[in-house]
Amino acid sequence: MHVPDGFLDAPTSVGTGVVAAAAVGLALRGARRELDDRTAPLAGLVAAFVFATQMLNFPVAAGTTGHLMGGAIAAVLVGPWTGVLCTSVVFVVQALLFADGGITALGTNIVLMGVVTCAVGWGVFRLLQAVLPKRVSMVPLAAGIGAFVSVPAAALVFVGLYAVGGVAPLPLDNLTTAMLGVHLLIGVGEGVITFLAVGSIIAVRPDLVHGARRVLAQRTLEVRTSPTASAA
């Protein structure tokens, strides 16, 4: 969903640029709470993995394709703030080095595919964690569903931005239907890839997964207090 130069007018692009800069600034502070000597090395590699998977377009319908956005996967693996930083780096490199996503649209792309997918992916993930059984095996499932929801959410935010500053006048209901339709399909791919990737790390080292921390901590707590807990 890389937005090229020219789709949105200059004021809107400046606006998303300001929002993106503010989000990255907040993420720099927030990421400090998520990263320590043990978890920081994984963050750079998650960004590299997101870049790599974004090269892999998969067919979703006749004549169209999609690729991973990666906000949800990054948020669950290394934390939502760190996820915003990782995806932002990916979009900067893609715009400057690979001419993928406009340079004036860099703020737009960071907001849509970085901030929105991290926030929605992480938000849905945490909601599901609250209602699903508190088991490590539930982490990849919750991550996958969060990832699935994050893609149409980003598509809707694009429609909102287009309503504000789209260069060509368009009937918005047509745009909404078209964007939602194709991005629901792309979201399925996003969900599957996220489920598999998070599941792979969970299978070997669940302690390295940010989104599994609460579950692991709780599991340890249960073991230690089991004699009294069973009495109560």
Binding site: R33, E34, D36, D37, A43, A47, T82, L85, V89, V92
Partner: peptide
Amino acid sequence: GVLVVLALAGGLTLLVRRRGEPADQ
């Protein structure tokens, strides 16, 4: 691309991290 992203994101997150103390648990 993978190496450039790794260098930038890895460098950034290493700079931002808390040194010598565990992050929020």
